[in-house]
Structure formats: structure tokens, C-alpha cells
Amino acid sequence: MNSNTPPREDEQVKTAVRNVLLGSAPERESELASLWSLLEPRFQLTADTHNGERLVMEAGMYRFVRFNHRVVRAFWIAGFAAWEAYRVVAETPELDPLDLKRLVELIDAFERVLESDTPELEALPKDVPEPGHYDDNPQLRAPEELATLGVGWALLHEVRHLKHQQDGDSADPDEADPTQRRSEELSCDAFATKFLLDQLVPYAQRENVSPNLVRRKRELGIYFALFAMTLMARDKWGASQSHPSIQARIDAVRALMGSQRDEVAEAIASVAFATLHTLMPGSPGIVPAPDDAGPSHPEERLCGRTNPQGNAVCS
């Protein structure tokens, strides 16, 4: 699609969105149907550049949720990057230097997708299939499914914006003080997070699977969405006129997960963010409170190792 192509909102687009959302939280099917009846959302697939914007994932005009191939492709590659950022630490013997070539390759591919006029034609790294293609290999299947969960979380975030608009409590885009706009973003993050997590226990019981494993997977999907947003906002992680800082969003989501949050999911995500930090100093991460009984700070797992420049990650 070029920039002059009208957005698509045909049955294929509707089905794709429905599959992502139902796949992310199958137990919420009736609630999704009620939301659809209430909000009457219209999902639009836009051009790779829409109204001057390259990354399109937005809600507006009380009805429309717009996204493009570029943002879906970016979330997909980011899922593989987050998984690699964890895997390389988990599989490297203690004190050995980290080989981050694969992670750098994935981030380079991610950034080419952001910058290209034809992102769908940018070659994907080895062992990264086209978005929506799922592999039987667990090392590939995990990032594929987690990236899809991340897209589902992002779409649910935009649906909440529509609810704010229709309820008349949406932030004023022309207000000089950004507080309301930032608060609305956190509200939408909270809605998406709770939608994926709040009813998972009955779902797990119906499916005869471990609730802990369902929670782990979904929390990781949420963290991977935040990892993707960290890559998208490279070097612009602070608060803006429209959004809170990425760190504030990570902190708020983690707090919302509460004491029930899965320690394994948090450990995996913590290591992924900490590894990214070695390539992008100043990037956000998962920072436990001083009295937190959760996993140890992920930077400790990297101490004694070296970054690609040959410098110690920490002393």
C-alpha cells in the first residue's frame, strides 16, 4: 500500500484482528462481543506511511483503530529480539563474554523496517519467518507467540482509547498540561494488561493447563510489547507531551501485575531488558523496589561478562 491508498477495513482485516484478540484471551470472547456491540470499532489497515507517520497504531474519531504492516512487522521482529536478549544470557556459561551478534542483527532488521519505504520487502534475519507463520521449534515458536500477544495487548490499548472518547473523558489534545494525556495512556495500558490477566485462572481450569504457565506466557507477551516500544522509541524514552516515559509504563504495568506476577516471566523479561541496556545505555528496564522479594536485579546476572566493545557490563 502506498501513502495514497485508502485504509482497508474489509473482512480480512476484521478477521485478522479478531484472531489476534481471541488468540490472546480466548476466555474473554463474550466480553469482546459486548465491547464490539458497545463501541462499534472499525479496524483499518493503513499504508506504510499514513498522514506522515510511519508507525501507525492509534485510535481516533470515536470508532477507528488504525495500524499498518510496518508496526506489525516491527512487533514481530522485536519479539525475536527480546527472546534473543534473554537466550544469549541463559545459554552462555557464567563469566563468558556474551555473543550479541544475533541480537544486533535482529535490532538492525527492526530498524530497517522502521526506516524503509517498503518495510514488507525488507529481508528478515535467518530463522525469522514472515509474521503470522508459526514454527514447531520451541526456540522459534516462543518469540512468535509472544510477539502476537504483544500485538494483541497493543490493540486492546487502542480499544480503551475509543472507550475514553465515547465516554467523554478522553484527554484534551490541545491542553498545555500533558498530565491528562499521560494518565490516559497509563489507563489504556492498565485495561489491556487486566484484560489479558484477570480471567486466566478459570480459562486454565477449563483447558486443564497450569494457571501459572498461562500467566507466565501472557505476562511475557506484555513485557515483550513494552520491549518493542522501547526499540521503537530508541533514545527517546522519556516522557513526551502525549505519553509518559517508557520506564513509567513498565513500572505501572509491573505494579498492576501485583504479588501474583510470575517470577519466571519477570526474570526472563528483566534479563532481556538488561541485555538491551548493554547495547543501548539509558534504555529502560524492570527495576524492583528495594523491599521487593522478587527476582534479583538482572544486572547482577550480567556482571563479569563483557559487552560487544569488550568492556565489563558492571564492576
Rank of each mutant, 00 (worst) to 15 (best):
R8T: 04
A16W: 06
G23D: 01
A33E: 12
S34E: 13
L39M: 11
L39R: 09
E40G: 11
E40M: 12
T46K: 10
N51H: 15
M57C: 14
E58F: 12
A59F: 09
V65T: 03
V65F: 05
R66C: 05
F67P: 01
V72Q: 08
F75P: 02
W76T: 01
A78C: 06
A81R: 11
A82L: 03
W83I: 10
E84M: 04
Y86F: 15
V88N: 00
E94F: 15
D96R: 13
K101Q: 13
K101A: 14
L103K: 10
V104F: 09
R112Q: 14
E115P: 04
P119R: 06
D127T: 07
P131Q: 12
G132D: 03
P138K: 07
T148W: 02
L155R: 06
H157K: 01
E158Q: 06
L162T: 02
A171G: 03
P173M: 00
R181H: 00
F195A: 00
L197C: 03
D198E: 15
Y203R: 11
A204P: 00
P211S: 02
L213M: 13
R215A: 09
L226P: 11
M232I: 15
S242I: 13
I246T: 06
Q247V: 01
A248I: 10
E263P: 10
E263G: 13
V271E: 08
A272K: 02
T275S: 03
S283I: 02
A289N: 11
P290C: 04
S296K: 15
H297M: 04
H297D: 04
R301G: 14
T306L: 11
N307W: 05
Q309L: 08
V313I: 11
